[in-house]
């Protein structure tokens, strides 16, 4: 179920959300097509121990709102430890420029919230395994032609 509350001028964004959320499968699905494809993924872990995360992100459109895919990354902590994590992602496109998705990696899940700008993706991730855990910024760059 989706509830939307508009508290200020909500023109373009709300219109995009409603259009993408209510369109039929045969519609253009502008939101999900903007994010579909294979992306390079780079992120930083800011807490509790700092680290870098890099790898690939493959996103497919499931319908005009929902997306799914896989994430395959290697996380290198500042302690020198490195681990490879590969798992599924699933989420929704807020509009043609904003996406939220959850990646299930290494026994936990990481929520992502990002803005899509052409062939670039930039946003924030938060680990939601329980208790204070990791978070940081991330970016993505589309690989290959759209």
């Amino acid at each position: 179920m989706i509830r939307v509350a508009l508290s200020l001028r909500g023109g373009a964004v709300l219109a995009a959300l409603v259009v993408s959320g209510c369109s039929s499968p045969t519609a253009s699905c502008e939101g999900t097509s903007a994010v579909s494809g294979q992306w390079s993924y780079r992120a930083t872990r800011e807490s509790p121990v700092q680290g870098t995360i890099s790898g690939s992100l493959v996103i497919e459109s499931r319908n005009c709102v929902d997306v799914q895919g896989v994430m395959d990354v290697v996380e290198v902590l500042s302690t020198g430890e490195a681990r490879r994590m590969a798992g599924t992602i699933s989420g929704t496109v807020i509009d043609s420029t904003l996406v939220r998705f959850e990646a299930v990696l290494g026994g936990g899940s990481r929520e992502h919230f990002a803005r899509i700008d052409g062939d670039s993706l930039a946003g924030t991730w938060v680990e939601t395994t329980g208790g204070p855990s990791g978070s940081g910024p991330f970016t993505g760059h589309r690989q290959g032609a759209r």
Partner: peptide, 18 residues
């Protein structure tokens, strides 16, 4: 429950539940 609030051009709160 997933909550998202956008505040660049408007303040829109979206709550998704399942």
């Amino acid at each position: 429950e997933r909550r998202t609030t956008l505040s660049d051009t408007a303040t829109i709160s979206i709550t998704q539940t399942a």
